[in-house]
Design a protein around this nucleic acid. Structure first.
Lengths: 187, 187
DNA sequence: ACCTGAACACCGTTCAAGT
DNA sequence: ACCTGAACACCGTTCAAGT
């Protein structure tokens, strides 16, 4: 006698995403997710292999959201240097809106919960495109890694509250973005 | 009737440090630490407030080690641009030797386990000094944040296995270090 | 076909009892 | 003064039993 589904993978990932921001990574428990979707914890295992798999799904959904944000920030006809600064700001806005998701995407230590590299590559594709225009095809990859490392590092440190020695953080970000755009472009 | 101490805070922190690298943050459990120092878990609470406090102590010890590494990398009479590149390499070497500790220092999400900002500031002081020489006192803070964000971001992404699209990672690091030194120095 | 309670092996933490 | 076993509230996960 078949029993009707009382939840869905989509609802589970959405619950996980919400819990991640509201309660942090430690608050993203199978039990909390189950309660949220109106089911008992063991039922989740019908749709998800386990907690690690769920966290990865949450991370991958976040990467897809980030991809959209970054693509929206780079209209095809934009000036490359300006586009690079815009990309940096878009990444920072995403991180401020969803700090836990941002951390999960970039600094998730555990192999088991890491989003697939292909998805990450797609997210960073706009950066690569702009860097190619700015630094030339040969240098595009190195340039993109430099910019991405700086932007992700800056925002990560900001979220970790690492900038406490005074000074204007917005200005420091602006400073970095401009200087990097210049450094990438320079011969 | 006094009982003799069977362990010490120092031994506990050392055991935590070792476990962190060997078994990851999740492997750093009170029980594993206790076993390692030859005692039962409840005994640890005589010397440490709890797991979060222990993780913080481990992180702070790591920051002190990193501070020494960075100070050793910047002899007072070095050329500033070369010193900046040396600092970046020293940070990267530390991260490769102790990846879990590095992550804990820079990307620890949880407030409760974060090393004190004063300690972090001391660690980054050599960077600030070199940046002042390179960019001028006015720009030193922004420049240091730019460089630190890039270096920590790059190495963090490297540890997270984010650089899979081919290309030489060592070269990308070198590229970034040189370009940043130039960008910081430029007017 | 899906959901559940019960159970298991693990956590962190507290505390009364031992020496 | 320090250490311990026992206990508690929580995890993730498995599985037989229900519908």
């Amino acid at each position: 006698m078949p029993a009707p589904s009382r939840t869905s993978l989509e609802a589970i990932v959405a619950a996980g995403t919400a819990l991640l921001e509201e309660a942090g990574p430690d608050g993203l428990t199978m039990q909390a997710v189950a309660t949220r979707v109106g089911v008992r914890a063991p039922s989740l295992y019908k749709r998800v292999a386990g907690r690690d798999a769920l966290v990865r799904l949450v991370a991958e959904a976040a990467v897809r959201d980030l991809t959209e944000v970054l693509e929206a920030a780079t209209p095809p006809d934009a000036d490359p240097a300006a586009a690079l600064v815009d990309l940096a700001h878009a990444l920072r806005r995403f991180a401020h809106a969803r700090p836990a998701a941002f951390r999960l995407i970039f600094w998730s230590g555990a192999e088991a919960t890491r989003p697939s590299p292909e998805l990450n590559a797609r997210a960073v594709a706009p950066v690569l495109r702009v860097c190619a225009a700015l630094a030339g095809e040969d240098r595009a990859l190195e340039a993109a890694r430099t910019v991405t490392a700086w932007a992700a590092g800056f925002v990560g440190m900001e979220l970790a509250d690492a900038f406490r020695s005074g000074g204007d953080v917005d200005e420091a970000f602006e400073f970095g973005a401009r200087r990097l755009a210049g450094a990438i472009a320079a011969g």
